[in-house]
Design a binder for these strands. Structure first.
Length: 188
DNA sequence: TCGAAGATTGTCT
DNA sequence: GACAATCTTCGAG
């Protein structure tokens, strides 16, 4: 895949675990009226369908989870704890609703704008090292829900992939069910 | 119509 | 290391 090129829909139309792993190193780019921000994805988690009790879709098909049942390659943005947004890339695995949660990025473009949006961060590495932080830094909110990741204001571009030795898998974070499933990918 | 819980973060001890 | 902030969603009454 060519560097800087928009990742095609077919990339997401595979097992969620594979997409989560290969998303590391890719660039998440967000265009807003305030400017353009982008960063390299360094942490992801997979949520793999109705049988995954930690996945929102485990509760069944509702208005909120409708997006997870939609086509792969679109954004699923949800609101939690009354104040935070988190962003996912919808994927497909054997016809089940599933998605990859993007937990952290390394800021590369529009860093000044990220500082403006997140004045509380103390270091550059704290600008987007969490699922809600990266949404705040990039300016992502509910209006991005269900939008395509191939066109529009929110895109994922091909980047330099990380070698296996630089990547580790661990149990997922911040959930109370299926905590033993190693579905989190991080760059060491 | 009401109550409980949540894929988190920042602040205080 | 522990806890509050804050609101949407879901399930029960």
């Amino acid at each position: 895949m060519k560097l800087g090129q928009v990742i095609p829909k077919s990339f997401y139309n595979r097992d969620t675990e594979i997409v989560a792993r290969e998303l590391l190193g890719m660039t998440l780019k967000c265009t807003t009226p305030e400017g353009i921000c982008a960063g390299r994805i360094v942490e992801t988690e997979a949520y793999v369908g109705e049988h995954d009790l930690a996945c929102h879709a485990a509760a069944g098909r509702t208005k909120r989870t409708e997006v997870l049942y939609g086509p792969p390659g679109i954004a699923y943005v949800y609101f939690v704890y009354g104040m935070h947004w988190c962003v996912n890339a919808v994927t497909r695995k054997e016809g089940h609703p599933s998605a990859v949660l993007i937990r952290a990025i390394e800021p590369t473009v529009g860093i000044d704008l990220m500082w403006k949006r997140r004045p509380r961060a103390r270091r550059e590495s704290e600008l987007a090292n969490g699922p809600a932080k990266l949404c705040a830094a990039l300016g992502i909110d509910g209006s991005f829900n269900e939008t395509s990741l191939q066109s529009g204001h929110l895109k994922i571009l091909a980047g330099e992939p990380y070698p296996d030795k630089a990547v580790a898998t661990t149990p997922r974070i911040g959930i109370s069910k299926c905590v033993d499933w190693p579905l989190r990918w991080i760059v060491k």
